[in-house]
């Protein structure tokens, strides 16, 4: 099922926004193929009529009251920012 080539690795890396040097693509493809090949043993398992398990917590979502009890802490929010100006986070200019 899995057949990850260099191009696929590059595509995944792009989706994940991770820079991978060209010469690392091939070895990484090998590793990922190894891991995914091993993972494919799951196809032996009969999972007809089995519900996918998203959480082990067998409960419904708890709700919060509609009360404003947070915010008003721009300083804390911005404190660790690599770059901020006038209480904004700043990033390289985006041209739309």
């Amino acid at each position: 099922m899995s057949d990850i080539d260099k191009a696929t690795v590059a595509k995944i890396a792009r989706l994940a926004r991770i820079k991978i040097e060209d010469d690392k693509l091939e070895p990484l493809a090998g590793e990922l193929n190894n891991i995914l090949g091993w993972v494919e043993q799951l196809s032996e398992v009969d999972t007809d009529n089995v519900e996918p398990m998203a959480s082990v917590v067998n409960a419904k979502l708890r709700w919060r009251d509609d009360v404003v009890n947070d915010g008003d802490k721009a300083e804390s929010v911005l404190k660790n920012a690599p770059k901020a100006e006038y209480s904004f986070f700043t990033v390289p200019k985006v041209i739309e």
């Binding site: 890396a13 991770i18 990922l32 995914l36 398992v45 996918p52």
Partner: peptide, 29 residues
């Protein structure tokens, strides 16, 4: 990086059911 790449791959279009949903089902078992 390796794990983020695997995770990105198994959630991506065309592979989600074969990998992720399958794994969630086996997790249930």
């Amino acid at each position: 990086k390796r794990r983020v790449m695997i995770g990105t791959y198994v959630l991506s279009a065309g592979y989600y059911d074969a990998y992720y949903i399958k794994a969630q089902k086996v997790r249930q078992l």
